[in-house]
Write a protein that binds this DNA or RNA. Structure first.
Lengths: 214, 214
DNA sequence: CGGCCACTTGTCCACCAGGACAATAGGCAA
DNA sequence: TTGCCTATTGTCCTGGTGGACAAGTGGCCG
């Protein structure tokens, strides 16, 4: 069972949180307090309100002080920009401090599976905003693929900035296999390493990409 | 208890899915089949593979035919663009067809609480893509200091695909100094390595580049 | 002058990336 | 059946990468 540690300055929400995780612990979070490093694997719930100026910096320092612990931010005044900021700072989740117990438990489950929790609203905003300027990929027109399907997946992941380890996890194969595919891709596209591959693919117009990627 | 209906043309994954939801139902999904409208409140799991040309259209028609049902897309060859497309088309979740039972149950839990399920990879891409554009400007934090002249030169070289050794030769400095500049650039732009730096810079519009590069 | 900043270089070290040898299994076509 | 292709994994090894300690120089500003 995972440990749940709630970092907060106020106690108003503790009863509700406790209904979600009866075995929870609460700590006041002062700047110095982060050095009481919880054991790796614990889940840290960071409560922020209007008094916290920049939660993202707080998240960063906490994550640095407690490697291996996921941090979820509970905001008194949830706001998309704030959520975006803390998630970029490395938080694994962002939601309102008033979230009901069921939601908290869901967040825990999602994070336990390596996911990130983003509220529906923020996610929707992300989707539309990205969809607008990422454009529709010309699919269904896949032809003349010079790369095999598997090679394409790996190439795409590299073009997105992933490491071999990440790709391996994502495709559920070993790192060795990723390397094998990548070596093949390098040879086919005549690039010397992943950096040039990424530059090459990202610099290509979408139509050209789908001609070489499956 | 919610009903789980798996729409698929192949049966290979049914055993795994059944371990997640013993009471699941399976239906072949043909175009005409969508008129067998499942009762509202059911969760539809749509299995797509390479043969499905545009899953987003399929999702849209299914959602139109079955209002009140959330649709989760299980892809044989998951990839970010496809995920983006189906989510914009109204899907409530997107993951690989090989997802283990625990993940499927998590997805169900998330959706039951009004959330959308997005894999960590896709979400990460959403965050970096959007965060670099909207998130920055909205959130003051004008500490996006431009890079120093020397740092800019190094950053530009990396964005062009150069190695440390090449940059060192070009700038007539030691490789060590190149590393020093690069570490600084990584910290300022909040990227973890040269690959993501290159992607970041190459993805930026020209005018945005000149704001951070000298 | 003292402090700050940009630029420079050093060593040590853990980790990642790719190439060079491999090998095995399944699908598919001649 | 034989051969080719794709996907998969193995070990060994070299070189590239980036962080963690530092530390020395020169310029500019209050």
């Amino acid at each position: 069972m995972k440990r749940h540690i709630f970092l907060t300055r106020r106690e108003v929400h503790l009863p509700e949180w406790r209904t979600a995780f009866p075995a929870m612990e609460a700590r006041p979070h002062a700047a110095a307090d982060e050095r009481l490093a919880p054991p790796g694997g614990a889940l840290l719930w960071l409560h922020v309100d209007n008094n916290v100026k920049n939660p993202e910096a707080l998240v960063e320092s906490i994550r640095k002080a407690t490697p291996g612990c996921a941090v979820v931010v509970l905001s008194n005044v949830p706001h998309d920009d704030e959520g975006l900021a803390v998630l970029e700072a490395g938080a694994a989740g962002y939601t309102g401090a008033l979230a009901v117990a069921a939601v908290l438990r869901n967040i825990e489950a999602v994070i336990a599976n390596g996911g990130l929790w983003v509220g529906p609203d923020l996610l929707q905003r992300l989707l539309v905003a990205l969809g607008r300027h990422a454009g529709r990929s010309a699919r269904g027109a896949a032809r003349l693929d010079r790369l095999s399907p598997r090679e394409s997946e790996v190439a795409r992941a590299v073009a997105a900035g992933a490491t071999n380890k990440e790709i391996a996890r994502k495709l559920a194969i070993t790192e060795r296999t990723v390397k094998a595919h990548l070596s093949q891709v390098f040879a086919i596209l005549k690039v010397r390493d992943r950096l040039q591959l990424a530059i090459y693919l990202n610099g290509l117009p979408k139509e050209a990409q789908s001609r070489i990627l499956h």
